[in-house]
Design a protein around this nucleic acid. Structure first.
Length: 454
RNA sequence: GGUCCGGUGGCAGAGUGGUGAUGCAGCGGACUGCAAAUCCGCGAAUGUGGGUUCGAUUCCCGCCCGGACCUCCA
Protein backbone atom coordinates (compact mmCIF):
# COMPACT_ATOMS: atom_id res chain seq x y z
CA UNK A 1 0.00 0.00 0.00
CA UNK A 2 1.14 3.51 -0.75
CA UNK A 3 2.13 5.76 2.10
CA UNK A 4 0.51 9.14 2.00
CA UNK A 5 2.60 12.20 2.70
CA UNK A 6 0.98 15.55 3.38
CA UNK A 7 2.34 18.96 4.21
CA UNK A 8 1.31 19.90 7.74
CA UNK A 9 0.85 23.61 8.33
CA UNK A 10 1.45 23.04 12.03
CA UNK A 11 4.95 21.62 11.55
CA UNK A 12 5.62 23.37 8.21
CA UNK A 13 6.89 20.08 6.89
CA UNK A 14 5.76 17.20 4.76
CA UNK A 15 4.82 14.32 7.04
CA UNK A 16 3.84 10.74 6.59
CA UNK A 17 0.16 10.53 7.32
CA UNK A 18 -1.01 8.02 9.88
CA UNK A 19 -4.55 8.18 11.16
CA UNK A 20 -5.21 7.99 14.87
CA UNK A 21 -7.29 4.87 14.26
CA UNK A 22 -5.44 2.81 11.65
CA UNK A 23 -8.56 1.91 9.67
CA UNK A 24 -10.51 5.12 10.05
CA UNK A 25 -9.63 8.61 8.85
CA UNK A 26 -11.46 11.59 10.30
CA UNK A 27 -11.28 14.83 8.37
CA UNK A 28 -12.94 18.20 8.77
CA UNK A 29 -13.13 20.97 6.19
CA UNK A 30 -14.44 24.47 6.78
CA UNK A 31 -17.40 24.76 4.46
CA UNK A 32 -19.19 27.83 3.22
CA UNK A 33 -20.75 30.67 5.11
CA UNK A 34 -24.00 30.83 3.24
CA UNK A 35 -24.70 34.44 2.36
CA UNK A 36 -23.75 34.51 -1.32
CA UNK A 37 -22.83 32.32 -4.27
CA UNK A 38 -19.57 30.39 -4.02
CA UNK A 39 -16.79 31.89 -6.10
CA UNK A 40 -14.26 29.90 -8.06
CA UNK A 41 -11.70 30.28 -5.27
CA UNK A 42 -14.09 28.64 -2.81
CA UNK A 43 -14.57 25.95 -5.42
CA UNK A 44 -10.83 25.33 -5.63
CA UNK A 45 -10.65 24.44 -1.97
CA UNK A 46 -13.69 22.19 -2.21
CA UNK A 47 -12.24 20.41 -5.24
CA UNK A 48 -8.82 19.99 -3.64
CA UNK A 49 -10.29 18.38 -0.56
CA UNK A 50 -12.60 16.30 -2.70
CA UNK A 51 -9.51 14.83 -4.38
CA UNK A 52 -7.87 14.30 -1.00
CA UNK A 53 -10.94 12.50 0.35
CA UNK A 54 -11.22 10.35 -2.79
CA UNK A 55 -7.59 9.38 -2.30
CA UNK A 56 -8.13 8.63 1.39
CA UNK A 57 -11.07 6.40 0.51
CA UNK A 58 -8.80 4.38 -1.78
CA UNK A 59 -6.15 4.08 0.91
CA UNK A 60 -8.31 3.47 3.97
CA UNK A 61 -11.38 1.33 4.60
CA UNK A 62 -13.28 4.04 6.42
CA UNK A 63 -13.25 7.83 6.07
CA UNK A 64 -15.49 10.24 7.90
CA UNK A 65 -15.50 13.53 6.06
CA UNK A 66 -17.26 16.44 7.74
CA UNK A 67 -17.80 19.73 5.99
CA UNK A 68 -19.95 22.25 7.78
CA UNK A 69 -22.31 24.94 6.65
CA UNK A 70 -22.07 28.14 8.64
CA UNK A 71 -25.53 29.62 8.65
CA UNK A 72 -25.16 32.10 11.48
CA UNK A 73 -22.84 34.99 10.81
CA UNK A 74 -22.86 38.76 10.82
CA UNK A 75 -22.41 38.85 7.05
CA UNK A 76 -25.64 36.92 6.68
CA UNK A 77 -27.38 39.32 9.05
CA UNK A 78 -26.03 42.26 7.11
CA UNK A 79 -27.22 40.75 3.83
CA UNK A 80 -30.71 40.29 5.25
CA UNK A 81 -30.83 43.88 6.44
CA UNK A 82 -29.76 45.17 3.03
CA UNK A 83 -32.03 43.02 0.92
CA UNK A 84 -35.00 42.54 3.22
CA UNK A 85 -34.89 38.82 2.50
CA UNK A 86 -35.48 36.65 5.58
CA UNK A 87 -32.33 35.06 6.96
CA UNK A 88 -33.66 31.53 6.73
CA UNK A 89 -34.43 32.10 3.08
CA UNK A 90 -30.96 33.48 2.33
CA UNK A 91 -29.21 30.59 4.02
CA UNK A 92 -31.45 27.90 2.53
CA UNK A 93 -31.15 29.30 -0.97
CA UNK A 94 -27.42 29.83 -0.76
CA UNK A 95 -26.84 26.35 0.64
CA UNK A 96 -28.87 24.88 -2.23
CA UNK A 97 -26.89 26.93 -4.74
CA UNK A 98 -23.68 25.74 -3.15
CA UNK A 99 -24.78 22.12 -3.42
CA UNK A 100 -25.73 22.56 -7.05
CA UNK A 101 -22.41 24.19 -7.95
CA UNK A 102 -20.41 21.54 -6.11
CA UNK A 103 -22.35 18.74 -7.76
CA UNK A 104 -21.66 20.31 -11.15
CA UNK A 105 -17.95 20.32 -10.34
CA UNK A 106 -18.03 16.69 -9.35
CA UNK A 107 -17.42 17.43 -5.68
CA UNK A 108 -18.88 14.48 -3.78
CA UNK A 109 -21.01 15.19 -0.71
CA UNK A 110 -19.33 14.87 2.68
CA UNK A 111 -20.43 12.19 5.10
CA UNK A 112 -21.76 14.82 7.45
CA UNK A 113 -22.70 18.37 6.65
CA UNK A 114 -23.67 19.93 9.96
CA UNK A 115 -25.20 23.37 10.17
CA UNK A 116 -24.07 25.78 12.84
CA UNK A 117 -27.57 26.79 13.92
CA UNK A 118 -28.35 23.19 14.82
CA UNK A 119 -25.35 22.92 17.13
CA UNK A 120 -25.81 25.87 19.44
CA UNK A 121 -26.05 23.63 22.55
CA UNK A 122 -22.64 22.11 21.75
CA UNK A 123 -21.19 25.61 21.38
CA UNK A 124 -22.68 26.66 24.70
CA UNK A 125 -21.23 23.60 26.36
CA UNK A 126 -17.80 24.32 24.91
CA UNK A 127 -17.93 27.88 26.13
CA UNK A 128 -18.95 26.72 29.59
CA UNK A 129 -16.03 24.36 29.68
CA UNK A 130 -13.70 27.18 28.69
CA UNK A 131 -15.05 29.45 31.41
CA UNK A 132 -14.79 26.67 33.97
CA UNK A 133 -11.18 26.00 33.09
CA UNK A 134 -10.21 29.67 33.19
CA UNK A 135 -9.69 30.10 29.47
CA UNK A 136 -12.70 32.34 28.92
CA UNK A 137 -14.48 35.11 30.78
CA UNK A 138 -17.74 36.98 30.63
CA UNK A 139 -17.75 40.74 30.08
CA UNK A 140 -20.65 43.02 29.24
CA UNK A 141 -22.80 40.21 27.89
CA UNK A 142 -19.93 38.83 25.83
CA UNK A 143 -17.86 35.77 26.50
CA UNK A 144 -14.26 36.09 25.38
CA UNK A 145 -11.45 33.63 24.96
CA UNK A 146 -8.43 34.64 26.98
CA UNK A 147 -5.45 34.39 24.67
CA UNK A 148 -2.85 34.81 27.46
CA UNK A 149 -4.34 31.72 29.13
CA UNK A 150 -3.02 29.59 26.28
CA UNK A 151 0.75 29.96 25.97
CA UNK A 152 0.87 27.97 22.72
CA UNK A 153 -1.36 30.48 20.97
CA UNK A 154 0.10 31.37 17.58
CA UNK A 155 1.68 27.99 16.90
CA UNK A 156 -0.37 27.32 13.79
CA UNK A 157 0.02 30.67 12.08
CA UNK A 158 3.59 31.04 13.26
CA UNK A 159 3.03 34.34 14.94
CA UNK A 160 3.75 35.40 18.47
CA UNK A 161 0.67 37.02 20.07
CA UNK A 162 2.38 40.41 20.37
CA UNK A 163 3.31 40.35 16.70
CA UNK A 164 -0.27 39.81 15.78
CA UNK A 165 -1.26 42.88 17.68
CA UNK A 166 1.33 45.10 16.10
CA UNK A 167 -0.57 45.23 12.88
CA UNK A 168 -4.09 44.85 14.20
CA UNK A 169 -6.49 46.72 12.02
CA UNK A 170 -9.42 47.06 14.32
CA UNK A 171 -10.08 48.99 17.46
CA UNK A 172 -9.79 46.91 20.54
CA UNK A 173 -13.13 46.54 22.29
CA UNK A 174 -13.01 48.02 25.80
CA UNK A 175 -14.34 44.90 27.47
CA UNK A 176 -11.37 42.80 26.36
CA UNK A 177 -8.85 42.00 29.05
CA UNK A 178 -6.21 41.46 26.44
CA UNK A 179 -6.30 42.98 22.96
CA UNK A 180 -5.91 39.56 21.36
CA UNK A 181 -8.90 38.03 23.11
CA UNK A 182 -11.65 36.98 20.75
CA UNK A 183 -15.37 36.58 21.05
CA UNK A 184 -16.96 33.22 21.80
CA UNK A 185 -20.46 34.53 22.41
CA UNK A 186 -22.01 37.92 21.93
CA UNK A 187 -25.36 39.47 22.78
CA UNK A 188 -28.03 39.69 20.11
CA UNK A 189 -30.57 42.49 19.95
CA UNK A 190 -34.18 41.40 19.39
CA UNK A 191 -34.04 41.92 15.61
CA UNK A 192 -30.99 39.67 15.22
CA UNK A 193 -30.84 35.88 15.41
CA UNK A 194 -30.15 34.76 18.95
CA UNK A 195 -30.41 31.87 21.33
CA UNK A 196 -30.93 31.75 25.06
CA UNK A 197 -27.75 31.03 26.93
CA UNK A 198 -26.33 31.34 30.43
CA UNK A 199 -25.11 34.77 29.31
CA UNK A 200 -28.43 35.96 27.98
CA UNK A 201 -29.85 35.94 24.48
CA UNK A 202 -27.00 35.92 22.03
CA UNK A 203 -25.19 34.29 19.17
CA UNK A 204 -21.87 32.57 18.70
CA UNK A 205 -18.65 34.23 17.64
CA UNK A 206 -17.08 33.29 14.35
CA UNK A 207 -14.80 30.40 15.34
CA UNK A 208 -16.68 28.39 17.90
CA UNK A 209 -18.99 26.65 15.44
CA UNK A 210 -16.20 24.63 13.86
CA UNK A 211 -14.83 23.60 17.23
CA UNK A 212 -18.33 22.47 18.26
CA UNK A 213 -19.18 20.59 15.10
CA UNK A 214 -15.84 18.87 14.67
CA UNK A 215 -16.10 17.76 18.30
CA UNK A 216 -19.64 16.48 17.82
CA UNK A 217 -18.86 14.44 14.70
CA UNK A 218 -15.17 13.61 14.94
CA UNK A 219 -14.27 13.78 18.60
CA UNK A 220 -11.83 15.80 20.64
CA UNK A 221 -8.83 14.85 18.52
CA UNK A 222 -9.04 13.88 14.88
CA UNK A 223 -6.78 13.51 11.88
CA UNK A 224 -7.01 16.30 9.34
CA UNK A 225 -8.44 19.79 9.38
CA UNK A 226 -8.49 21.81 6.20
CA UNK A 227 -9.36 25.08 4.61
CA UNK A 228 -7.89 27.88 2.54
CA UNK A 229 -4.67 29.53 3.65
CA UNK A 230 -6.59 32.66 4.49
CA UNK A 231 -8.27 30.77 7.32
CA UNK A 232 -5.03 29.95 9.10
CA UNK A 233 -5.29 33.17 11.01
CA UNK A 234 -7.42 33.94 12.85
CA UNK A 235 -10.01 31.25 12.22
CA UNK A 236 -8.00 28.08 12.59
CA UNK A 237 -5.65 29.51 15.18
CA UNK A 238 -8.65 30.32 17.32
CA UNK A 239 -10.40 27.03 16.73
CA UNK A 240 -7.26 25.24 17.78
CA UNK A 241 -6.95 27.34 20.93
CA UNK A 242 -10.59 26.84 21.92
CA UNK A 243 -10.65 23.13 21.36
CA UNK A 244 -7.34 22.29 22.97
CA UNK A 245 -8.25 24.37 26.01
CA UNK A 246 -11.76 22.91 26.26
CA UNK A 247 -10.52 19.34 26.21
CA UNK A 248 -7.51 18.85 28.34
CA UNK A 249 -5.08 16.47 26.71
CA UNK A 250 -6.61 16.77 23.27
CA UNK A 251 -4.71 17.96 20.24
CA UNK A 252 -7.67 18.94 18.09
CA UNK A 253 -6.49 18.31 14.51
CA UNK A 254 -3.17 16.51 14.15
CA UNK A 255 -2.55 17.57 10.57
CA UNK A 256 -3.56 20.86 9.00
CA UNK A 257 -3.91 21.08 5.26
CA UNK A 258 -4.34 24.47 3.61
CA UNK A 259 -5.00 25.19 -0.02
CA UNK A 260 -3.56 28.23 -1.75
CA UNK A 261 -5.43 31.23 -3.03
CA UNK A 262 -6.53 31.87 -6.56
CA UNK A 263 -5.65 35.13 -8.19
CA UNK A 264 -7.04 37.09 -11.09
CA UNK A 265 -4.54 39.25 -12.95
CA UNK A 266 -1.91 38.54 -10.31
CA UNK A 267 -4.11 39.78 -7.51
CA UNK A 268 -5.78 37.66 -4.88
CA UNK A 269 -9.34 36.86 -5.72
CA UNK A 270 -11.57 37.83 -2.85
CA UNK A 271 -15.03 38.92 -2.09
CA UNK A 272 -13.82 42.07 -0.43
CA UNK A 273 -11.87 43.16 -3.52
CA UNK A 274 -14.75 42.25 -5.78
CA UNK A 275 -12.44 40.65 -8.35
CA UNK A 276 -14.01 37.23 -8.33
CA UNK A 277 -15.94 34.97 -10.64
CA UNK A 278 -18.71 32.90 -9.15
CA UNK A 279 -18.44 29.19 -9.79
CA UNK A 280 -21.76 29.52 -11.50
CA UNK A 281 -20.64 32.01 -14.14
CA UNK A 282 -17.50 30.04 -14.86
CA UNK A 283 -19.53 26.86 -15.26
CA UNK A 284 -21.86 28.61 -17.67
CA UNK A 285 -18.97 29.20 -20.06
CA UNK A 286 -17.10 25.93 -20.06
CA UNK A 287 -17.55 22.21 -19.43
CA UNK A 288 -17.50 21.44 -15.72
CA UNK A 289 -14.64 18.96 -16.05
CA UNK A 290 -12.52 21.61 -17.74
CA UNK A 291 -13.16 23.97 -14.85
CA UNK A 292 -12.34 21.26 -12.37
CA UNK A 293 -9.15 20.34 -14.20
CA UNK A 294 -8.12 23.98 -14.35
CA UNK A 295 -8.39 24.03 -10.55
CA UNK A 296 -6.10 21.03 -10.03
CA UNK A 297 -3.52 21.67 -12.74
CA UNK A 298 -1.57 23.64 -10.15
CA UNK A 299 -0.38 22.06 -6.92
CA UNK A 300 -2.90 22.82 -4.18
CA UNK A 301 -0.48 24.76 -2.00
CA UNK A 302 0.58 27.17 -4.72
CA UNK A 303 -1.10 30.41 -5.51
CA UNK A 304 -2.74 29.88 -8.89
CA UNK A 305 -3.83 32.27 -11.53
CA UNK A 306 -7.34 31.64 -12.77
CA UNK A 307 -8.50 32.72 -16.20
CA UNK A 308 -10.66 31.73 -19.14
CA UNK A 309 -7.44 30.83 -20.94
CA UNK A 310 -6.53 28.37 -18.19
CA UNK A 311 -9.93 26.70 -18.48
CA UNK A 312 -9.62 26.57 -22.27
CA UNK A 313 -6.25 24.87 -21.99
CA UNK A 314 -7.67 22.37 -19.51
CA UNK A 315 -10.43 21.68 -22.03
CA UNK A 316 -7.87 20.87 -24.73
CA UNK A 317 -6.02 18.62 -22.35
CA UNK A 318 -9.23 16.73 -21.64
CA UNK A 319 -9.89 16.47 -25.37
CA UNK A 320 -6.73 14.44 -25.66
CA UNK A 321 -7.66 12.18 -22.74
CA UNK A 322 -11.05 11.50 -24.26
CA UNK A 323 -9.56 10.83 -27.69
CA UNK A 324 -7.33 8.28 -26.05
CA UNK A 325 -10.44 6.47 -24.80
CA UNK A 326 -12.42 6.82 -27.99
CA UNK A 327 -11.58 3.48 -29.55
CA UNK A 328 -12.41 1.52 -26.41
CA UNK A 329 -16.18 1.44 -25.95
CA UNK A 330 -16.02 -1.04 -23.08
CA UNK A 331 -13.41 0.00 -20.59
CA UNK A 332 -12.83 -2.40 -17.75
CA UNK A 333 -12.38 -1.55 -14.11
CA UNK A 334 -8.76 -1.00 -13.20
CA UNK A 335 -6.61 0.11 -10.32
CA UNK A 336 -5.22 3.60 -10.46
CA UNK A 337 -1.83 3.15 -12.15
CA UNK A 338 1.16 3.36 -9.79
CA UNK A 339 2.71 6.54 -11.22
CA UNK A 340 -0.53 8.43 -10.68
CA UNK A 341 -0.98 6.97 -7.23
CA UNK A 342 2.60 7.80 -6.29
CA UNK A 343 2.19 11.39 -7.42
CA UNK A 344 -1.00 11.89 -5.43
CA UNK A 345 0.44 10.22 -2.36
CA UNK A 346 3.27 12.74 -2.42
CA UNK A 347 1.36 15.66 -0.95
CA UNK A 348 -1.38 15.47 -3.55
CA UNK A 349 0.82 16.33 -6.51
CA UNK A 350 -1.97 16.63 -9.05
CA UNK A 351 0.17 18.23 -11.81
CA UNK A 352 2.57 15.30 -11.68
CA UNK A 353 -0.37 12.88 -11.67
CA UNK A 354 -1.67 14.58 -14.80
CA UNK A 355 1.65 14.22 -16.54
CA UNK A 356 1.51 10.49 -15.77
CA UNK A 357 -1.99 10.42 -17.24
CA UNK A 358 -0.61 11.85 -20.45
CA UNK A 359 1.77 8.92 -20.59
CA UNK A 360 -1.22 6.58 -20.24
CA UNK A 361 -3.05 8.49 -22.96
CA UNK A 362 -0.08 8.04 -25.30
CA UNK A 363 -0.12 4.29 -24.73
CA UNK A 364 -3.87 4.08 -25.10
CA UNK A 365 -3.66 5.92 -28.40
CA UNK A 366 -1.02 3.43 -29.48
CA UNK A 367 -3.47 0.63 -28.81
CA UNK A 368 -2.92 -0.40 -25.21
CA UNK A 369 -6.27 -1.27 -23.66
CA UNK A 370 -4.94 -1.54 -20.11
CA UNK A 371 -3.57 1.99 -20.28
CA UNK A 372 -6.96 3.23 -21.39
CA UNK A 373 -8.57 1.54 -18.38
CA UNK A 374 -5.86 2.97 -16.15
CA UNK A 375 -6.44 6.43 -17.55
CA UNK A 376 -10.13 6.25 -16.76
CA UNK A 377 -9.38 4.98 -13.25
CA UNK A 378 -6.87 7.77 -12.66
CA UNK A 379 -9.44 10.26 -13.88
CA UNK A 380 -11.88 8.79 -11.39
CA UNK A 381 -9.56 9.67 -8.56
CA UNK A 382 -9.20 13.24 -9.78
CA UNK A 383 -12.84 13.55 -10.75
CA UNK A 384 -12.23 14.13 -14.46
CA UNK A 385 -12.54 12.07 -17.66
CA UNK A 386 -15.68 10.45 -16.27
CA UNK A 387 -18.15 11.24 -19.03
CA UNK A 388 -18.69 9.04 -22.04
CA UNK A 389 -16.57 10.01 -25.00
CA UNK A 390 -19.69 10.72 -27.00
CA UNK A 391 -21.08 12.97 -24.31
CA UNK A 392 -17.82 14.87 -24.01
CA UNK A 393 -17.32 15.53 -27.71
CA UNK A 394 -20.89 15.63 -28.89
CA UNK A 395 -23.14 16.11 -25.86
CA UNK A 396 -25.78 18.79 -26.28
CA UNK A 397 -25.01 19.46 -29.94
CA UNK A 398 -27.66 19.61 -32.64
CA UNK A 399 -27.00 16.13 -33.94
CA UNK A 400 -29.68 16.12 -36.61
CA UNK A 401 -28.46 19.34 -38.20
CA UNK A 402 -24.87 18.17 -38.07
CA UNK A 403 -25.66 14.77 -39.57
CA UNK A 404 -27.60 16.49 -42.34
CA UNK A 405 -24.65 18.75 -43.06
CA UNK A 406 -22.32 15.77 -43.14
CA UNK A 407 -24.63 13.96 -45.57
CA UNK A 408 -24.72 16.98 -47.84
CA UNK A 409 -20.97 17.32 -47.64
CA UNK A 410 -20.47 13.64 -48.39
CA UNK A 411 -22.52 14.11 -51.53
CA UNK A 412 -20.44 17.15 -52.50
CA UNK A 413 -17.23 15.25 -51.94
CA UNK A 414 -18.51 12.35 -53.97
CA UNK A 415 -18.88 14.61 -56.98
CA UNK A 416 -15.54 16.20 -56.15
CA UNK A 417 -17.13 19.56 -55.37
CA UNK A 418 -14.49 20.33 -52.78
CA UNK A 419 -15.33 23.99 -52.71
CA UNK A 420 -18.81 23.20 -51.45
CA UNK A 421 -17.52 20.48 -49.10
CA UNK A 422 -15.00 22.86 -47.57
CA UNK A 423 -17.60 25.58 -47.20
CA UNK A 424 -19.86 23.28 -45.19
CA UNK A 425 -16.95 22.24 -43.01
CA UNK A 426 -15.89 25.86 -42.48
CA UNK A 427 -19.39 26.88 -41.56
CA UNK A 428 -19.57 24.30 -38.77
CA UNK A 429 -16.01 24.90 -37.72
CA UNK A 430 -16.95 28.50 -37.03
CA UNK A 431 -19.58 27.17 -34.64
CA UNK A 432 -17.04 25.00 -32.88
CA UNK A 433 -17.95 21.73 -34.56
CA UNK A 434 -15.00 20.09 -36.24
CA UNK A 435 -15.47 17.53 -39.01
CA UNK A 436 -12.92 14.76 -39.31
CA UNK A 437 -12.83 12.66 -42.44
CA UNK A 438 -11.93 9.04 -41.89
CA UNK A 439 -9.97 6.86 -44.31
CA UNK A 440 -13.10 4.79 -44.96
CA UNK A 441 -14.92 7.83 -46.31
CA UNK A 442 -17.08 8.47 -43.26
CA UNK A 443 -16.91 11.68 -41.30
CA UNK A 444 -16.89 11.99 -37.53
CA UNK A 445 -17.43 15.22 -35.72
CA UNK A 446 -16.84 16.76 -32.33
CA UNK A 447 -17.42 19.98 -30.48
CA UNK A 448 -14.01 21.32 -29.57
CA UNK A 449 -14.20 25.06 -29.23
CA UNK A 450 -16.11 25.56 -26.03
CA UNK A 451 -19.86 25.65 -26.00
CA UNK A 452 -20.56 26.82 -29.53
CA UNK A 453 -22.67 24.51 -31.58
CA UNK A 454 -24.32 23.11 -28.51
C1' G B 1 6.77 47.96 9.92
C1' G B 2 6.60 42.42 11.21
C1' U B 3 6.02 37.30 9.47
C1' C B 4 5.77 33.89 5.54
C1' C B 5 5.75 31.99 0.47
C1' G B 6 7.45 32.18 -4.42
C1' G B 7 10.53 33.69 -9.11
C1' U B 8 11.80 27.38 -14.24
C1' G B 9 10.99 27.66 -22.19
C1' G B 10 6.02 32.04 -25.70
C1' C B 11 2.31 30.37 -21.86
C1' A B 12 0.84 26.69 -18.06
C1' G B 13 3.50 23.68 -14.69
C1' A B 14 6.48 19.37 -11.93
C1' G B 15 10.86 17.11 -10.30
C1' U B 16 15.92 17.11 -9.14
C1' G B 17 23.31 18.08 -5.79
C1' G B 18 25.50 15.26 -11.85
C1' U B 19 23.82 16.55 -19.11
C1' G B 20 15.77 20.30 -16.92
C1' A B 21 9.18 16.18 -16.71
C1' U B 22 4.47 17.00 -18.80
C1' G B 23 0.77 19.92 -21.33
C1' C B 24 -0.80 24.05 -24.53
C1' A B 25 0.99 27.04 -28.39
C1' G B 26 4.73 27.30 -32.53
C1' C B 27 7.79 25.10 -36.55
C1' G B 28 9.12 20.85 -40.09
C1' G B 29 7.54 16.03 -41.93
C1' A B 30 4.05 11.64 -42.58
C1' C B 31 -1.18 10.87 -43.39
C1' U B 32 -5.41 13.73 -46.06
C1' G B 33 -8.46 16.19 -52.23
C1' C B 34 -7.54 20.08 -48.46
C1' A B 35 -8.26 19.84 -43.36
C1' A B 36 -8.97 17.75 -38.41
C1' A B 37 -7.25 13.98 -35.32
C1' U B 38 -3.05 10.86 -34.92
C1' C B 39 2.13 9.72 -35.56
C1' C B 40 7.52 11.20 -36.23
C1' G B 41 10.83 15.16 -35.46
C1' C B 42 12.52 20.40 -33.97
C1' G B 43 13.44 24.92 -31.45
C1' A B 44 12.74 26.99 -26.62
C1' A B 45 13.71 28.07 -19.49
C1' U B 46 15.96 27.63 -13.87
C1' G B 47 15.39 36.45 -11.63
C1' U B 48 20.42 38.48 -9.94
C1' G B 49 25.30 38.63 -7.30
C1' G B 50 28.22 35.80 -4.11
C1' G B 51 29.34 31.22 -1.06
C1' U B 52 29.71 25.70 -0.14
C1' U B 53 30.91 21.61 -3.67
C1' C B 54 34.64 17.91 -8.26
C1' G B 55 29.80 19.65 -9.85
C1' A B 56 24.20 24.10 -7.83
C1' U B 57 18.18 25.09 -10.99
C1' U B 58 18.34 22.30 -6.29
C1' C B 59 21.87 23.86 -0.20
C1' C B 60 23.49 28.83 2.29
C1' C B 61 23.77 34.46 2.27
C1' G B 62 22.78 39.28 -0.02
C1' C B 63 19.95 41.95 -3.69
C1' C B 64 15.82 42.72 -7.10
C1' C B 65 10.82 41.45 -8.28
C1' G B 66 5.95 39.31 -7.23
C1' G B 67 2.28 37.45 -3.86
C1' A B 68 0.02 36.33 0.93
C1' C B 69 -0.99 37.08 6.18
C1' C B 70 -0.84 40.60 10.51
C1' U B 71 -8.82 39.82 13.78
C1' C B 72 -14.12 40.10 6.52
C1' C B 73 -12.13 36.03 3.34
C1' A B 74 -11.62 29.27 0.50
Amino acid sequence: MHSLFLHNTLSRRKEQFEPLEPQHVRIYLCGPTVYDLAHIGNARTMVVFDVLVRLLRVLYPRVTYVRNITDVDDKINARARESGEPIEQITARTAADFHADMAALGVLPPDEEPRATRHIPEMVELIQRLIASGHAYEAQGHVLFSVPSFPAYGQLSGHAPDELLAGARIDVAPYKRDPGDFVLWKPSPPDTPGWDSPWGRGRPGWHIECSAMSWRYLGETFDIHGGGTDLIFPHHENELAQSVCAFSGSRFARLWVHSGMLQINEEKMSKSLGNFFTAREVLAKAPAEAVRLALIRTHYRSVAEFSDAAVAEAKRELDRFYRALERYPDLGAADVPPPVMAALCDDLNTPLALSAMHGLADKALAGDFDSACGLRAAGGLLGVVQQSVDEWFRGGADRAAIEAAIAERREARRRRDYKRADAIRAEWSARGVVFEDRPDGSTSWSVVAGQEGR
